[in-house]
Design a protein around this nucleic acid. Sequence first.
DNA 1: TAAAAATACTCCATAGGTATTTTAT
DNA 2: ATAAAATACCTATGGAGTATTTTTA
Lengths: 101, 101
Amino acid sequence: MELRHLRYFAAVAEEGSFYQAAQRLLVSQPSLSRQIMDLERRLGQRLFERTSRGVRLTPSGQALLQHARQILGLAATTQKIVSEAWTRWPAWCGPYRPDQA
Amino acid sequence: MELRHLRYFAAVAEEGSFYQAAQRLLVSQPSLSRQIMDLERRLGQRLFERTSRGVRLTPSGQALLQHARQILGLAATTQKIVSEAWTRWPAWCGPYRPDQA
DNA sequence: TAAAAATACTCCATAGGTATTTTAT
DNA sequence: ATAAAATACCTATGGAGTATTTTTA
């Protein structure tokens, strides 16, 4: 499991749709669909019920969402804290412009 | 930033050596070295001081280690909780054998 | 000078894209 | 009939490996 899986999962859960979440994440709907299927396979759980007008969280999905938010929040905080520390990366390494590091 | 970066980082921090950590992680020393450099680039911080008999955490590295452990612990707990829920993945999808999901 | 890390390549697994089909209402 | 997800297929980024060089106690 990688943070990418959780970012994608949370977006789908919040949008209630692969279609919408893909737009928000700036990835294609099939790429997103495959990442979620991969996550479901890794966890051995179906996370969404698919319908013809979107998706709905399964009980497992609801459980995951709470934890995913915690993890993503902690990851964001961590990046902020460490990135803003005073031991700067030497300038000669060149800049790095992350969407999220 | 992905969980892989944090897993690798924690291993290096605990072993005090890329060389040793690579063996523990079952990856090559150069692969590990590049992943850590990538993480340092993303965070804009040098995480380790390199010496000829291993590595030592920088202040930024020490800060990251605490958070990395939290995140990795939370991720492990999450996988356990969700994986052991009752909504089993249908058998027809075939099994999945992760080292860690 | 002897360890450990960094570099230089090569390879390939997989994330991501486009086109299309399937499904459910 | 239509809107959304799944599938098929292709491309390419970057993760991983081997061989080698550089560094520093």
